[in-house]
Design a protein around this nucleic acid. Structure first.
Lengths: 221, 221
DNA sequence: AACCATATTGACCGATCGGTCAGAACAATC
DNA sequence: GATTGTTCTGACCGATCGGTCAATATGGTT
């Protein structure tokens, strides 16, 4: 085969790489970039250490790949938001989506948190580029909602940060929360309760009138 | 002198220990327990590595001492809260105090965050003991406020977690926030704006009527 | 000056770090 | 069955890890 980086270069390789990535995500999320060791990742993946380097090249390349994978997972959030959208619907959806993402990718979320704590040395471009643009454009639309009288005149950037922090907290601080609550983990009921609480407080706090639609539990996408 | 662990055992020793503690707090906050090296701490403190161990005994002892120091700093928060208190006043004070604490001790706050991310191996007792009691007792009072009709019937534990997350975010995610905003750091004006925003959204979101006193500029309601 | 507790530090220890490499094992093609 | 390219891995490398220790320096008491 003359193929080089074909998308389907051996399904076996793909499986192994995913195994390594998942193991590495877990170790990096616990101990950060410096604190994680390739040996620990290899043990978790049940592979010799040399295999990790064979497939990933270097510790840094592996780490960066994980960061990129996690960034991609966040792409869908708040995709279709317009000045004509209903603020209550959009913000509710924002909150729910972020909670779900945190639950779906707890290790990736913690990995990101650790990277930010470390001063975000590998995320500089992303934060000051892609993410800043994301925030700026969404903030502009929220600002318009305020001008249209759909909600209070709050700083949209602080609102975005509030939703980020409030939702991420339950993933990244899970160790604290479970111990304080005296539980092993948060169950579905807890998460539904938390989501509802956050929607209630944040929407009401922004002066967004109780929405007419989107009252049901959950359905399609 | 027959003194052993006198409070004033050489002011010089005290000064050196503080220098080490501050240097260590910075390094640990960036890289977590495993990721931090004694050599890096020694360099930051401008002391030989052997001195760090002479004064602190071991890496773990140094780390635990830092955790305890940070826990002590949080003791004053929400100290005097009673069922008769005004929710608006108490929660406003809570928010402001936490924001100020984060600004005063950014490294300590990040250190704590890293410890939680790592699964809180050294904080198990504290979280499941002292802190759980703290949350339980405060939650009980907030619950009473709800029953008295002073505020909406929200789960007090989620409310406490919300305030924790929202306030801590600006300290622990400072790297992300400054880059997204395109700034070097948050200034006094930003912090005042953020504090006011959080008070507005959280109090209003919990159905706490605008308090008579402590009213500033602001606008929409 | 003699004494002693404390402070200071370079040199060193075994273990582990990220990374390299030669060669064995394997699979597909001719 | 020989050839070829990929996968796999034990052994090894220099650097750094947390920690120990002996030797020296320092400062107060007598």
């Amino acid at each position: 085969m003359t193929v080089e980086t074909a998308p389907n270069e051996s399904a076996n390789r793909e499986r192994i790489e995913q195994r390594i990535l998942n193991a590495a995500e877990q170790i990096f999320s616990l101990h950060g970039y410096r604190g994680a060791s390739l040996q620990a990742i290899a043990d978790k993946a049940e592979l010799p250490k040399a295999n990790i380097l064979y497939y990933m090249g270097s510790k840094q390349a592996l780490y960066v790949r994980l960061l990129n994978r996690m960034m991609r997972r966040w792409n869908a959030v708040l995709e279709n938001i317009t000045p004509e959208s209903d603020p209550g619907e959009v913000l509710s959806d924002f909150i729910r989506t972020k909670i779900v993402l945190g639950q779906r990718y707890p290790d990736g979320s913690k990995l990101f948190a650790a990277e930010i704590l470390a001063g975000a040395p590998f995320l500089d471009e992303y934060l000051a580029g892609e993410l800043r643009d994301w925030v700026t454009s969404r903030a502009a639309i929220i600002r318009q909602w305020s001008l249209q009288g759909k909600m209070d005149d709050v700083d949209p950037r602080w609102l975005i940060f509030l939703i980020w922090s409030a939702t991420q907290h339950y993933t990244e601080y899970s160790a604290q929360i479970t111990r304080v609550l005296g539980r092993d983990a948060l169950n579905e009921e807890d998460l539904a309760s938390i989501t509802q609480f956050l929607e209630h407080v944040i929407l009401k706090g922004c002066g967004i009138s109780p929405l007419a639609s989107s009252q049901a539990s959950s359905a399609a996408n």
